[in-house]
Nucleic acid binder design. Sequence first.
DNA 1: AAATCGGGGGG
DNA 2: CCCCCAGATTT
Length: 418
Amino acid sequence: MNVPPLGVGACTRCDNGAMSVTVPAATQRKTEIIPPAELTAFQTQLLTWFAGAKRDLDWRRTRDPYRVWISEIMLQQTRVAAVLPYYRRFLKRFPTIDALARARLDAVLRSWAGLGYYSRARNLHRAAKQIVARHDGEFPRRIEEALALPGIGHYTAAAVLSIAYGEPHAVLDGNVARVLARLGAIRGDLRRPKRWQDLAAAANALLPEQAVPAAGAPTTEAGDWNQAMMELGATLCTPRAPQCDACPVARWCRAHALGIALHLPAPRHKPKPIRLTLSAAVLLDRRGRTLLLRQKTDHSSLFSRLWHFPAIQAPKSAPKKLARYLKSVFGITAALEPLPPARHTVTFRRILLTPFLVRVAKLPPPKLTGVRRVRTPRLAEIERLPISSATRKIAAAALAVSPESHRGTAEATREPYG
DNA sequence: AAATCGGGGGG
DNA sequence: CCCCCAGATTT
């Protein structure tokens, strides 16, 4: 099969008679990944493969719009394996939109703790309230209304509406974009807004028409189509080592024909990583209690605006600077006992966490600390508060060396989502 | 158009 | 280590 690359070079398919005269060649090149005459065969091939190869995932066992929505938010920039345990716990804790809307934000954040991108949880909570207030507690079926909800962009709106309601919207995510880039041998940065729009149009052009499937035949619903495209990208058409031998649509793939599948799409532009060190103090009194803050500081965003230990930023591990900070803010003069460092990343920042254990007779009374948002939970129980992984890593280092921190914490092992 | 937001699995 | 992942929002 003759499969010339799209976007660059000549298009040998543009001379196929009078029908294409009215279509601008430039538009056609960007939108037409599969020749129209072969579209049905392509769709059948992919859907048949998907019917047999799809992974059994929790969110594929339901079409409840709420559950589909939760799964799609969690899956944003996050791998399936990481999402699964969170998805199960979250739905156990918040089984309905109503339950989510009624919950406190911190309860939602606590269920999200460790998953990252915490604005997702904040927007999820806001959107649940809006759905209860404006949509009678039902996830909207119209795409304009879905897009108006916080945290829902084009991908998530198309995903939820197609999977839950069968509405004909094509999704475009990283997987689909990579599949399209290889099918069409599209070079260049896919994330440029203009290019992404073209890819969205191309994805829509591939979407099967709604039709009643014959008995036993693969369904042609948009939700299955979208999931089939994403499944292909997630399992076979992977970024590093595409398995073209097993690909059900390899015969339509221009990148495969050219032997450049491995080199597409072009790598994403990445900002240069910034390295920094955060020295944190794990205060610990005789009863195993510690002190956490939740205030706006220079580095509070590095803790995702969640509860965190008192900390200072410096070029490298800085116990003296941390000691000065503890004295000036809390009046603490106790010794600092170094703990094993831990690594943490926030987007492009690579953080070296250098924690110190500070044993004190008494924790500073919250009212005298000069900071409003202070709590003194047991160190072994801080996961009852919304914390980021950075705080969890610091706590783990302290728990490993301080027997007293475990004293009297028989309840600490109980379900943290109580 | 560019910057920002987490965290982890796999090469 | 480096890469990128079922993206959205803000500037």
